[in-house]
Design a protein around this nucleic acid. Structure first.
Lengths: 249, 249
DNA sequence: CGCCTGCTTGAACGCTATCAAAAAACGTGG
DNA sequence: CCACGTTTTTTGATAGCGTTCAAGCAGGCG
């Protein structure tokens, strides 16, 4: 089950993801190239490890469906979650550019991913300036998200941090089609949130309780419902990015 | 003094930086392209603001000499330093890819930078697959550094955080030619360190004192000398990246 | 000399961690 | 459907790391 399977394989031209609002349209040549580049699809179960820190990964992925997360650990086991993955995100770019992965990636929910061969990755730069630009765009965007997280963990209080994270994930989920305003359920447990915020599990629990008390969220069996994303964002002194078109590879 | 000056302009082929150990050599065509791409040089004084959050920046830069830093602030003034800049670093890529800068950049010491026109930036992708790859590589590397910082701020204790930061800057300075083992003086004040670590100024001071007491650093007028980088790295459970060749644009 | 910025120190407070344990939710097999 | 083990969430009490407040000191510079 670790290997790509081709059973549900389909052409990128008709990718259901691309029809989602906000992805850049590809011209015929680009679409053909991405299709050729694609070597399979991978589905995986919650908790499955996609990529491990230190490993040489022969694959790159694009998330088609589901939630995942990236993290790093210290030798003594302390874990920091770096970011979450949603459909449209490219996974494993660092490994392709820098030889080795310096972080791990796990599935949070069942996931479906596009698989690309790392060995053929460089041809993107040779064949299509637009697609190469898209790759760099994605890398830049990830950098921006990390900037925000660093600001959050470094400067915000526990309550603000939690509010920022949940607002962030809410808007991220909306845009990627994983959430709707009517069904804004984030599939996270409190241990993950704690490791994202850099707080202890106990204190995370008490902090989430405070947000729930304010009516901004409601904890619902293994995850939480975002009730008032704007209030969360405001509490965190954060404004969600306005979403222009973005690339999908 | 805000505008690029061309007085000390020189061709990239003979760039002094490139002769530094570890930068990828350019072939004739690439060198010519980068030379054409370069539109000037900029020098600035300590404390000068290069780029402000929210601004549309018409320029990209590559650091030729000096130290700088990137940071973000919350509305109420809390500031988080995201990373430091040394020679070889590309500045303002996010602005070029994503329309607006979402962080600010200040000079820490006198700096000298190569200036590129943002308007012509896209031609890199059309003209040279190798250079386009280099840009992406640089973006990926920055992402990796941010991953490390986030792990640090989120999970390490105050003492470990300080040790990591100083070890990190030491090896960064070494590789970029800003430091030597004999003269390992980091030009930071404690306020900057505090805003990098996400600690208060007072506690930062006490923490640095502890490191000095252990003989790992020595505080020397407006900055600190790194005496035992390996001990710092070990204390922080961190291993410096082994340095392969890296691109310079 | 005097101001300003940056560093240092001590004391009190409080946010967050840790410890410990219970309750609730979930999954699984009978 | 119930019983049971496991994971997740919740709660209370205690301890400690880091903040804030408040000074004082040192050094650089006009």
């Amino acid at each position: 089950m670790d290997a790509p399977n081709n059973r549900s394989m389909m052409k990128c031209e008709s990718c259901v993801l691309r029809s989602l609002n906000g992805f850049r349209a590809l011209d015929a040549e680009e679409a053909k190239f991405v299709s050729d580049f694609k070597s399979g699809e991978l589905t995986c179960e919650p908790g499955m490890n996609l990529i491990s820190e230190g490993a040489y990964s022969p694959h790159l992925y694009t998330v088609l469906d589901g939630w995942g997360f990236r993290y790093k650990t210290l030798e003594d086991g302390r874990r920091q979650i770096l970011n979450y993955l949603v459909p449209g995100d490219m996974v494993g770019l660092q490994g392709a550019m820098l030889e080795r992965m310096d972080h791990s990636i796990d599935a949070l929910t069942p996931m479906r991913l596009c698989v690309f061969e790392r060995a053929r990755f460089l041809t993107i730069f040779e064949k299509s300036a637009n697609l190469a630009f898209d790759v760099t765009w994605l890398a830049s965007r990830e950098e921006r998200l990390l900037d925000e997280h660093l600001l959050s963990v470094g400067q915000r209080t526990a309550l603000e941090r939690a509010a920022y994270l949940l607002a962030f994930l809410y808007f991220r989920g909306l845009r990627s089609g994983m959430l709707s305003a009517a069904d804004a359920h984030l599939p996270l447990n409190q241990g993950l949130i704690a490791d994202t915020l850099g707080l202890s599990l106990v204190h995370t629990n008490k902090t989430l309780k405070r947000l729930a008390h304010k009516g901004m969220i409601a904890w619902k069996g293994r995850g939480c419902n975002v009730l008032d994303p704007d209030a969360l964002a405001s509490l965190a002194q954060w404004t969600p990015p306005k979403g222009g078109v973005r690339p999908l590879i």
